[in-house]
């Protein structure tokens, strides 16, 4: 216990300095993004990803990028969530669960497609097990391109949602 406290004191804050605030909310094209000001509860849905994006999301919520500073928080159930962070091309087996997850999330809900696969199936386009991109299954409000996207890009997208 003491050693843990000592570690906390000696390491201190490792978070990167916060980049400037995103542009004002009114400028955002999507109406729904503007409604969640201040804080957003985030549920990650892996719709068939190679897990590269998951590692980057993990980093985004880790101590260095610390997305929670900006009001975004990971939750364990879509019933608690405002934002769905969807990764990967949507596989046939995950298409229905993704739809149900979307239905289960509280309204108003924001869907963020993370990574190239989520935006246009990327490397896996046309594969036999792939149903389509995320936008083919549920309406997407925000996209984060990259294979995988860097944590700061994910954080920037979440800051557009929380507005902080």
């Amino acid at each position: 216990m003491l050693s843990l406290l000592r570690k906390i004191v000696s390491v201190g804050r490792v978070a990167e300095p916060a980049p400037p605030r995103p542009e004002p909310a009114a400028a955002d094209p999507a109406q729904r993004i503007r409604t969640l000001r201040g804080s957003a509860q985030v549920r990650c849905v892996d719709a068939g990803s190679c897990n590269g994006c998951e590692i980057e999301i993990g980093q985004a919520f880790g101590p260095v990028y610390d997305a929670e500073r900006y009001g975004a928080r990971i939750v364990a159930s879509p019933r608690h969530a405002d934002v769905l962070l969807v990764t990967g091309p949507v596989t046939r087996n995950m298409a229905e669960p993704l739809r149900r997850t979307y239905q289960a999330a509280a309204q108003p809900r924001v869907v963020v497609a993370v990574g190239d696969c989520a935006i246009d199936c990327g490397e896996f386009a046309g594969a036999y097990g792939v149903e389509g991109a995320v936008a083919d299954v549920v309406p997407v409000d925000l996209a984060v391109p990259g294979c995988p996207p860097a944590p700061d890009q994910i954080v920037a997208a979440l800051r557009r949602v929380t507005g902080r």
């Binding site: 879509p78 019933r79 229905e96 669960p97 149900r100 997850t101 289960a104």
Partner: peptide, 9 residues
């Protein structure tokens, strides 16, 4: 009324 959340399964 809403259906019980069953993890999407």
């Amino acid at each position: 009324t809403a259906p019980l959340w069953d993890c999407g399964a």
